[in-house]
Design a protein around this nucleic acid. Structure first.
Lengths: 197, 197
DNA sequence: ACGCCGCGTTGCACTCAGTGCAAAATTTGC
DNA sequence: GCAAATTTTGCACTGAGTGCAACGCGGCGT
């Protein structure tokens, strides 16, 4: 039961991933307009109805599944030494997020081309669980600094600005030809924010 | 023609605004789920088809029309003295945006209640012309500092982090009971960013 | 071997958003 | 009051997304 349950999970994840790749190829092949649920389903050899067993919306099929969650990111932050400066700890979180946008090697070109042609897709991503991540991280920062996030702006400002530059760095590095990686860009941006604008 | 054209514009804007108010009241009354295009149209006494002559999507009816554009905001920035520090100029832009989220006095309670119950709507807003605003402002900043925005991160970091805290400030001030206005919060946040995190 | 069970897949019918087109209604200029 | 321009509307259609019930299939006990 546990063994076969896990196997099922793996199979399900694999199939989901296969559908995603099919969808990406379809978009690169025929364009975004041609990407109907029907077309994806046919290409992936499943029924349209089954598509929605794997994705709750059409767009979801074009997004990479994040390897982290609000919980794991917050844990990452909280596991840092308590006396480390808050903003230093945020860098660790930032790099973790940036890494999650690096696809497997064989797929790298596929995604790069998709994002180059349709940069909106790289933006759309975030807003999903973002709300919860923000709340959770802001609370964690407030706890570290011993302040009340409803009174002190610092935790909110740190988290929101950090995430905004993370998003910028990821987009920039994937859309443009540039020898700087998103990790590099995040470092540059964090340096600027740390020393003040 | 110029005279009556302008009148038409005003009438159209007024009608659009009336529909928006109808939609907001409908949501407060019956909930988001009940807000179908058909329901809005009926309440506003127009045909469903006409609804789409005024709005290109259902959600658009629940958003306040910004009083600015990429062009006007960039002009605002560029009209600042050339020797003023960039970040100082950004405050002006920030306050302009914050002001645009203050509804007319009689409608204030309506919007506040809507945003309190459905904070997503306050977030959804931005992404519309955001892309263009960012590009335009980043270029303006780069011009002021005499740098290449593809090489120097500074302009991008300033603009993206500024906008992220603007968004936070607006949301925070409208959702929570707090005696600080969004202008106050933006000042606090900009102080933090200016001196460094 | 038989039948039962659990689970993923599928078909079907339905609601609703959104669009193109052409006809009808209304407003405007003269 | 008439003709042109503009706005409103009906209609038909595509496509997303959902609930439900049926179907297929592998495992499991007897």
């Amino acid at each position: 039961m546990s063994a076969s349950d896990q196997r099922r999970e793996r199979q399900k994840a694999a199939k989901r991933h296969a559908i995603t790749l099919t969808a990406v190829r379809l978009v690169l092949d025929k364009g975004l307009d041609a990407m109907t649920v029907e077309a994806i389903s046919e290409a992936a050899d499943i029924s349209p109805r089954t598509f929605f067993n794997y994705f709750s919306s059409k767009d979801e099929a074009l997004q990479m599944r994040p390897s982290w969650s609000a919980v794991s990111l917050t844990a990452l932050f909280q596991d840092r030494p308590a006396d480390e400066p808050v903003f230093r700890s945020m860098r660790v979180v930032a790099q973790e997020i940036a890494d999650s946008f690096v696809p497997a090697r064989e797929e790298s070109e596929l995604w790069r081309e998709l994002w180059r042609r349709h940069p909106e897709l790289l933006a759309k991503r975030s807003s999903e669980g973002e709300e919860e991540i923000f709340r959770s991280l802001i609370l964690a920062v407030a706890e570290r600094t011993g302040t009340d996030p409803m009174k002190d702006s610092y935790p909110s400002v740190v988290v929101t600005s950090a995430f905004s530059v993370i998003q910028w760095a990821v987009r920039f590095s994937w859309i443009n030809e540039d020898d700087r990686t998103s990790a590099n860009l995040i470092d540059e941006a964090f340096d600027l924010l740390e020393r003040g604008l």
